[in-house]
């Protein structure tokens, strides 16, 4: 069964790009959304292996209050049903210190900065996250 990736991304161009790279180069099963409710629902349902999370989500809101990727990550990690799902923060916020502060404040598992220069690196990190979560998972077919 193919690895299922949920991409949380507000920029359609970038969302499309993630989809192309992950499907074509890694053979993952990819879903794209920017709706927090969808994210939480998929996570609880256990129908996702790795979440790639953008930080700036201009249009996302939970119960009327705007939420960003960090807040959604916090909620996922707080919930026992979704806490074990690896989350990779992917963001164009790449100033000095961003990585550490984002990881610490959200509880995400890893961080990759945009622009993503190497698709192989992205796939490698996703693979590492899955390995870490579950040693039984075989390396993805190349």
């Amino acid at each position: 069964m193919a690895i299922r990736i949920l991409v949380v991304e507000d920029d359609p161009m970038n969302a499309k790009l993630f989809q192309l790279i992950l499907v074509r180069k890694a053979g993952y099963q990819v879903e794209v959304t920017e709706d927090p409710a969808v994210v939480l629902e998929r996570a609880r349902a256990g129908s996702v292996d790795v979440i790639i999370m953008d930080v700036s989500l201009s249009n996302s809101a939970c119960d009327g209050t705007p939420v960003d990727g960090l807040e959604i990550t916090r909620r996922l990690k707080r919930d026992a049903a979704s806490a074990r799902i690896p989350i990779l923060l992917a963001t164009a916020h790449a100033m000095k210190g961003s990585r550490e502060s984002f990881l610490r404040s959200s509880g995400a598992d890893d961080y990759i900065s945009k622009p993503i220069v190497s698709a192989d690196e992205l796939i490698g990190r996703i693979h590492a996250l899955i390995e870490k979560r579950d040693h039984a998972v075989p390396p993805p077919p190349r």
Partner: peptide, 17 residues
């Protein structure tokens, strides 16, 4: 920085494809 990086992601990504 954020605003410049976002379109650059698309440029690099699609160019790589």
């Amino acid at each position: 920085s954020h605003e410049l990086r976002t379109p650059l992601n698309a440029v690099i990504g699609f160019a790589t494809l």
